[in-house]
């Protein structure tokens, strides 16, 4: 048998699904990084840790480099997914009059395109709320003054301008450390005073959870990893870590700021 791969790997259904799986898994790793960083929001430091983290993420060159790769992968995963979903509908031009798909497959596996579209809409909203604002919007500056003698910290609004996103200095006798920084924390906190936005974020996280319950384990199957022992572990990670724990942790943030805004916590 003399056979060449006539169609080409990246034009084949399997090849394209493999690229979907790999970009999807990369996005799963990103979720862990993003969540870990966002936990700084829960620090009781008037947002200093979170603001420092925001500066780091937007100025440290290797992270900036990876972030462009990340945006490209989000776009690729979204549009290739929609393209494949469209192509797959073409594989059955005449639909069934009666179809009982619930008898043979979980709904999450059949609505990946719908769930993914909800997530894409969410990402656009989320980026315009914070990413776009941080880069282009009028972000207030906050001055954090930490005493180097007893460690007490005070935060106050800084009126004026600084070069870049952060200015840091000690006073002459080394007793006071001052950080003047773009305050994304306050933008986040104020955004979630809006109950509509909070609901959108929570629903989007539910969609993310359902998307990953199927998506995480499915990507391993697509790249050819299926094993009697390990597949069960992968499925459990997909359900409990990516499907439940991570989306709940993300959803906790808008809920936390909303509860703060109505003085319930």
């Amino acid at each position: 048998m003399e056979v060449k791969n006539k169609i080409g790997f990246l034009n084949s259904g399997i090849g394209q699904k493999v690229t979907m799986a790999l970009t999807g898994l990369f996005l799963c790793i990103f979720l862990i990084v993003h969540l870990t960083g966002n936990f700084q929001l829960f620090h009781h430091d008037s947002g200093l840790a979170f603001n420092e983290y925001a500066v780091f993420m937007t100025t440290f060159p290797p992270i900036k480099f990876v972030s462009y790769g990340l945006y490209a992968m989000i776009l690729y995963h979204a549009f290739k997914g929609l393209h494949l979903a469209y192509k797959n509908t073409k594989a059955r031009p005449v639909k069934y009059q009666v179809e009982k798909a619930s008898a043979n497959s979980p709904w999450t596996s059949r609505y990946m395109g719908v769930l993914g579209t909800i997530i894409l809409v969410f990402i656009c909203t989320h980026m315009s709320n914070f990413w776009w604002e941080y880069h282009n919007g009028p972000i207030p500056l906050t001055k954090y003054e930490t005493s180097l003698v007893n460690g007490t910290m005070t935060a106050s609004t800084y009126v004026g301008e600084i070069a870049g996103k952060k200015l840091e200095y000690n006073n002459a006798d080394n007793t006071l450390h001052t950080v003047i920084i773009k305050d994304l924390y306050v933008v986040v906190a104020e955004a979630f005073h809006n109950i509509g936005l909070v609901i959108l974020y929570v629903l989007a996280m539910a969609a993310l959870g359902f998307h990953l319950v199927h998506g995480f384990q499915s990507s391993f199957q697509t790249v050819g990893f299926n094993h009697v022992r390990y597949t069960k572990v992968i499925q459990a990670i997909g359900i409990y870590v990516f499907g439940i724990a991570i989306p709940i942790a993300f959803a906790a943030m808008p809920i936390y700021f909303y509860l703060l805004s109505i003085h319930l916590i």
Binding site: G13, K17, L84, N88, N104, S105, P106, T222
Partner: peptide, 8 residues
């Protein structure tokens, strides 16, 4: 079509 691992 391509496989989306629904298991159907």
């Amino acid at each position: 079509g391509s496989c989306t691992n629904t298991g159907a």
